[in-house]
Amino acid sequence: MTNFTTVTEFLLTGFAEKWEIRLLLSLLFLLMYLATLTGNILIISATTVDQNLHTPMYFFLRNLSILDVCYVSVTVPNACVNYVTNNWAISVAGCATQIFLVIYFAFVEILFLMFMARDRYVAICQPLHYPVIMNHQFCVRMTLFSLLSGLLYSGAHTGNVFRLSFCQSNVVQQFFCDVPSLLSLSCSDTFSNFLLLFVSIIVVGGVSFIFLTISYFHIFSTILKFPTRERGKAFSTCVPHILVVSVFLSSIAYVYLKPSATSETIQDMILSVFYTIVPPFLNPIIYSLRNKQVKEAVRKLIVFLPESKKFPFQVHPCVAE
């Protein structure tokens, strides 16, 4: 029998070995993290306090902001500490927890983005039916469905990974624990793991991509009928939505579906930033802070002004400045 040592902890990998570069990366990650927290907490507070923002579209925006705060907190604070201390060790339990949470929040984020696309489609293409279709019960049910199905999805992947045996090398080629990096370290047969990854990414990513493509096709078809001024506002807001979602889905698909034999450590780590850090950082700017009503609610929240100014009508983020 071949001698081997069972892994009791994993060692994560940073982008660089030099102290100066590690400190710079730590500061960059920290600034992005603080900006993400600030933007999302402002959105959460504004959409909670301002009664004018208690509508389905802001209900999903508030939930997305809460999700993004949790999502970015899974990886970035730990990475910042690791860069400063140069201590990249993480226990098996800690690694399993990180994998579970990253997959969970990424999956729920995809579902939230789909429901928000649905919200924009109904608001723009079927405005008269908006109150009926996007009612409060529908929003709550879809949110609960996302949270509960995310537990099953993430639990299946995490359990399937940690039923494997890990021996010899314990160096994870990533700044946080993720499934592809761990599978390359296993001394067990990982065919079923790669099959589950492939099927789930194709199904979840494919369905969400098709759903978003069809929704935005109908949205843009309707927008083209708008007057020129309103058309420009709608395009300037909706196009960034598509870009962020596209980067989010494509980076996940590339990292998780790429054969392990062609692994490129730095490239994989950079791409992982595009689905773990960039979306929570950009979402408050793209989805909320460019909207007049949200900006006004945030302004009142910051300067502690009384809520005396009321808005005569609700404007959907896709057609607001």
Rank of each mutant, 00 (worst) to 15 (best):
D119F: 03
D119C: 13
R120L: 08
R120A: 04
Y121G: 00
Y121I: 00
V122M: 04
V122P: 05
A123H: 10
A123C: 15
I124E: 07
C125K: 09
Q126H: 13
L128K: 15
Y130W: 14
P131R: 15
P131D: 14
P131W: 12
P131T: 14
V132K: 15
M134H: 02
M134V: 07
N135P: 00
N135C: 07
Q137M: 05
Q137S: 11
F138T: 05
F138M: 05
C139E: 02
V140W: 12
V140I: 09
V140P: 04
R141S: 01
R141G: 00
M142T: 08
T143F: 12
T143E: 05
L144Q: 11
F145C: 09
S146M: 01
S146L: 02
S146Q: 03
L147T: 07
L147I: 11
L148A: 13
L148V: 14
L148S: 10
L148E: 04
G150K: 04
G150Q: 04
L151T: 09
L151H: 11
L152F: 14
L152K: 13
Y153A: 15
Y153G: 13
Y153N: 10
S154L: 08
G155K: 12
A156C: 15
H157E: 08
T158P: 14
N160M: 12
N160R: 08
N160D: 06
N160V: 09
V161D: 06
V161C: 06
V161T: 12
F162L: 10
F162I: 12
R163P: 01
L164D: 00
L164S: 07
L164C: 05
S165W: 00
S165D: 03
F166E: 01
F166M: 03
C167H: 11
Q168M: 01
S169E: 05
S169N: 08
S169Q: 11
N170F: 01
N170K: 02
V171D: 02
V172N: 00
V172K: 01
Q173F: 06
